[in-house]
Amino acid sequence: MLETFNFRVIVEYLPFYWKCFLATLWLSGGSLLGALVVGVIACAMRLSESRIISRVAGVYIESIRSTPLLAQLYFFYFGLPSLGIRMPEEATGILALTLNSGAYMAEIIRAGVQSIAYGQIEAAMSSGLSYLQRMRYIVLPQALGVSIPPMLGQAIVLVKDSALLSLISIVELTRAGQILTSDRFMPAEGFLTTAVFYLIIYYILKAFSHWSQKRLIFRGA
């Protein structure tokens, strides 16, 4: 197979791959930011003392975790138009990714929050700080610090998840491979190049994760 591996085609398509690489990056990046926001809100709701609010967040998180991302993606892609909502595919894609990762982020943050010694919350309560004040100044700053490594893990998952967006015709890395397969009948060149680009992102994120863990060890009490 290697003898027939056509490097020239890859070079020819490299500018296209570069565009797709950037598309993957901004689709994942945008969804990551969205997921952080959704995650913080969902986590705060989940930990709320109101049973209704906590249940609503719980239903959201459990539904996401018990169903595949692809089904969620199709749910929005096919479902929103039937409600009369027309969105560009990219928006639908980011929406699905954001809601999906948001649920996992909520659980990561929750684990971080619950890892904080309860004594501190008692100390904060004893000085008269309200629930919101305790969350904002005492709990969340520490929880987020602890949560960074698993969050980076979720970022890696998110980049891989973004590949599914190719199935709703969004042009990103995996779609590049599909296009090379359908246009030029070269699935090997197509998908292996795609894989290489994903691996570049993966190894960079992994390195960043190692680096940030080293820094965190020095900061921890």
Binding site: K160, A163, Q178, T181, F191, L192, A195, Y198, L199
Partner: peptide, 11 residues
């Protein structure tokens, strides 16, 4: 672990 499963399936 570094590549999407969809890409692996295609490969």
């Amino acid at each position: 672990r570094g590549t999407p499963f969809l890409v692996q399936v295609f490969i």
